[in-house]
Design a protein around this nucleic acid. Structure first.
Length: 610
RNA sequence: GGGGGUGUAGCUCAAUUGGUUAGAGCGCUGCCCUGUCACGGCAGAGGUUACGGGUUCGAGCCCCGCCACUCCCGCCA
């Protein structure tokens, strides 16, 4: 054995595991890392050493190494941490491995030190095929092992690069990064909040912010002019693949600007991010689509435009049809729309049923469809159609053998949303059958604009803000506010990529009279209540508020898209499960009696069994 | 709160219509092996079929309950 552990005490690694090349041949190096795999040929023994950067093959050759050392090496477990000292050499002819970057060389082990012996692993992490299929429950419990997998390490690296690129870009653009409190106050609107009891005054609570929305507007009044923050946000709502109880936003606000400034800024930011993370040049400016067009053509306010199957309007075709389901819908002010799911005539009973359930979820009675199979239209409703109606369908929907036509006859918004949902379902089915292939390198960015400022709540019989009450109306629509609120467009915008809502924002109201109209006349909130809920903001706006606007991007979703995953859990180091628990730390957990007493809290529900 | 999916060896999965002692690959243990890189060969250990009930002569499989993970709806201004 070479230099003992004592001799190595202050010797650090000389290279990382993705660094050595033929040019290093002859050098004595020290590598630190994890035992990725071990191949014991009886005499020769290969140990692949892995660190964050990559892998290097090391070789124990019994002809120039003490038997005792070889013996110790042969008993190394996977994932033990070792420090290896040895001499770099070019691999013998024919034994190079072109699949790893260091595959032309190897390190002849002279000595090694076990820094930490790994126990037998709960799951293997050296085979990406197997590891990627391991139950997520186990991966989350042993997250530190999961994160060692090259794929997860890559995701962490991309996330870091994107965060740094964002800060660098925003700095270049003259923005200040300002931190805002995470101990905030409870606000009645919006998502359910996490509450933090206040020890100093019994019965009072902080709330964790759903977003820094109010602080960033106050910062504009404070004269910051250009603010951004990678802000942690908290929402106590049920989880999804793309929603965690705590998540990160790229939060941005600017003064003295209009919508175009935001579009240009975000296009520049995303250009920089895509270049940094994927070395891709994305074309700008992005396409802009009105809310109305998005619903009308794709049936959703965040359209995935990477494939067709667009909605077609058939209202005029069926206005006076003898098929009362269609003509009746038109007569009561609705529309008839359809999509052509090309190649889905073979849809199973179960698939048709799933789609029918979607339609029923929107209040429809059923789902009309036509399967074009064997040269004929197979459908329960086609017998009601005239020759002219069939002719019109064939033309407008470009019907061919193998198509599946799906109809919605309802009020415009509902009909659009039904088909929008079904369109996405059909795309999923076709994708799983390999009949719809989307280039993973394709990114369809677009702005959705001209959202309605207000929506009507039928049950409460009143208007409410589609976005939030500080969203400015489009200037030319302000006269409509009192007479025709429905037609007022907000200066709100969403940025969408591949059907994912990446972020949204708006130009805010900075004129007190418009704000007063919105609160008191449109939203019907009393001056007293307005004062209570938004008092400090309205106060701030009295002392010189610049016109301003901003946007927030979902940073986790952004990273997920860049990493090619659909679950943001894959780009968060320590995510929560769908029930909001952490399987590694076993949180949340009960509080001690002492803690509760200090906080003046009494727990009524039985604590979960310890 | 509601609906769907999954749960069998450490991991990934099998197990015919409810029928003998629940199998395979990887991993693990032991032995052999000097150019492997998913090394190879031989042998071996390893199971409360998530958990609790029920039906049955007999349950991994059927029924009821429950737990965990996951996807979706509601929810997320």
């Amino acid at each position: 054995m070479g230099p003992g552990p004592a001799g190595n005490l202050f010797m650090k690694r000389t290279h990382h595991c993705n660094e050595l090349r033929p040019a290093h041949a002859g050098q004595t190096v020290i590598l630190d890392g994890w035992v990725h795999s071990r191949r014991d040929l009886g005499g020769l023994l290969f140990i692949d050493l892995r660190d964050r950067e990559g892998r290097t093959q090391t070789v124990c050759d019994p002809s120039n190494l003490a038997p005792e050392t070889c013996d110790r090496a042969s008993r190394l477990h996977s994932e033990s941490v070792v420090r290896i000292t040895g001499k770099v050499r070019v691999r013998p002819e024919g034994t190079q491995n072109s699949r790893i970057a260091t595959g032309e060389v190897e390190v002849m082990v002279e000595a090694f030190e076990v820094l930490n012996e790994a126990a037998i692993l709960p799951f293997s992490i050296d085979d990406p095929e197997v590891a990627s299929k391991v139950n997520e429950e186990l991966r989350l419990q042993y997250r530190y092992l999961d994160l060692r997998r090259p794929e997860m390490a890559r995701n962490l690296k991309i996330r870091s690069k994107v965060a740094i690129a964002t800060r660098s870009f925003m700095d270049d653009q003259g923005f200040l990064e300002v931190e805002t409190p995470t101990l905030f106050k409870s606000t009645p609107e919006g998502a359910r909040e996490f509450l933090v009891p206040n020890r100093r005054e019994p019965g009072t609570f902080y709330a964790l912010p759903q977003s820094p929305q109010q602080f960033k507007q106050i910062l504009m009044v404070a004269g910051v002019e250009r603010y951004f923050q990678l802000a942690r946000c908290y929402r106590d709502e049920d989880l999804r693949a793309d929603r965690q109880p705590e998540f990160t936003q790229v939060d941005i606000e600017m003064s003295f600007i209009d919508r175009e400034d935001i579009y240009g800024l975000i296009e520049g930011l995303l250009k920089r991010v895509w270049k940094t993370a994927l070395d891709m040049d994305i074309p700008t400016p992005f396409r802009r689509i009105s809310f109305h067009e998005a619903l009308n053509r794709w049936g959703i306010d965040k359209p995935d435009t990477r494939f067709g199957m667009e909605l077609v309007d058939l209202t005029e075709t069926f206005r006076s049809s003898s098929f009362k389901v269609f003509s009746g819908a038109v007569a009561s002010g609705g529309v008839v729309k359809a999509i052509n799911a090309k190649g889905m005539a073979g849809a199973t009973q179960g698939q048709i049923e799933t789609m029918t359930e979607y339609a029923k979820g929107f209040g429809a009675k059923g789902l009309a469809f036509i399967k074009v199979e064997g040269g004929e239209w197979k459908s329960p409703i086609v017998k009601f159609f005239t020759a002219a109606e069939k002719e019109s369908l064939t033309t407008t929907l470009a019907i061919e053998e193998g198509d599946l036509i799906l109809f919605a006859a309802d009020q415009w918004l509902n009909a659009c949303e039904i088909l929008g949902k079904i369109r996405l379902y059909c795309a999923d089915v076709l994708k799983s059958q390999g009949r719809l292939v989307i280039d993973p390198q394709r990114f369809d960015f677009l702005w959705v604009v001209d959202f309605p400022l207000l929506s009507f709540d039928k049950e409460m019989n009143r208007w409410y803000s589609s976005h939030h009450p500080f969203t400015a109306p489009v200037a030319e629509d302000i006269p409509l506010l009192k007479d025709d609120p429905k037609r007022v467009r907000g200066q709100h915008y969403d940025i969408v990529v591949n059907g994912v809502e990446l972020g949204g924002g708006s130009i805010r109201i900075h004129q007190p009279d418009v704000q007063k109209t919105i609160f008191e006349e449109i939203l019907q909130i009393s001056p007293e209540e307005t004062r209570l809920r938004f008092g400090y903001m309205l106060d701030a706006f009295r002392y010189g508020a610049p016109p301003h606007g901003g946007i927030a991007l979902g940073f986790d979703r952004l990273c997920a898209i860049l990493c090619g995953t659909t679950s943001i859990r894959d780009v968060i180091a320590f995510p929560k499960t769908a029930k909001g628990t952490c399987l590694m730390t076993d949180s949340p957990g009960p509080a001690s009696a002492r803690q509760l007493r200090d906080l003046h809290l009494e727990v009524k529900a039985a604590p979960p069994k310890a």
